[in-house]
Structure formats: structure tokens, C-alpha cells
Amino acid sequence: MDELFPFIIAKYNYWASLILLFIGLYGMIAKNNLMKKIIGMVIFQTAILLFYVSIGVKRGGTIPILEFGADHQPLLDATAYANPLPHVLMLTAIVVGVGTLGVALTILQKIQRVHGTIEEDEVLEDLRQ
């Protein structure tokens, strides 16, 4: 136990996002209710967002907006700012995530309207008849 704890602490950002990722994947595979599958998908997406943002953190680095000194010149030291690239990638990914979530909820509404249920096995049963 004394060895395991520092092992987890050293990489706890990866542990947190990977555990969230597998919770989401389990929800997507194992749950029977389609709404719960969508919730699993959203947890999965959030885990990936967390993973990327945690990669961009630098010790001692502030947000990637340039600071200006007394002489009105920006401080151009890359170690003073967090990595901007993961933030850019995740900014667009969040909005596209909202788009995919909207389409998923729409298809769910349509399934509910046609089959009268959002339980996967009942939908499959309805399709076979």
C-alpha cells in the first residue's frame, strides 16, 4: 500500500480521466436504457476533455493570455503560460459534443415515438415483429 499510493498520486490526472473514461464506456456497452447509454457517451467525452486539458498544464504557468509588463511589451516566455493547444482543441470539441448530444437526443425521441420505448431489448423485440 505504501508503494501504491505515491504511484497513483504521481499520475493522478491520468487515473481520474481513465477511470471516468471506463465508467462511460461501461455505461455505453452494458446499460439497456438508451438514455443511460447517451449519459455514458457524455461521461466518455468529458473524460477525454479532462485528459487533454490536464496535458496542457505547466507548473508555474498561468492561463495562455500574454501578460504585459510596465513597458507595454508582452512577456514572451513559453514556460510562464499553460500550453494553449489542448485548450483550442477542446474548445471546439465541447461545442461539437453539444451537437452530437443534440443529435443523439433527437434520435432517441424518434425511437420513442416509433417504438414507444427506449429500452434496447424492447426496441429489438419490436423490430423483429
Binding site: Y12, G56, V57, R59, N83, P84, L85, P86
Partner: peptide
């Protein structure tokens, strides 16, 4: 965690 010399922070950014 928060390593300034990590690969993600040392090439393009």
C-alpha cells in the same frame, strides 16, 4: 503532472 518539459508542451506550443 504539470511537467513544463513534457512532449506536448515542448514542440509546437
Amino acid at each position: 503532472w504539470a511537467d513544463p518539459a513534457s512532449p506536448a508542451s515542448s514542440h509546437l506550443s
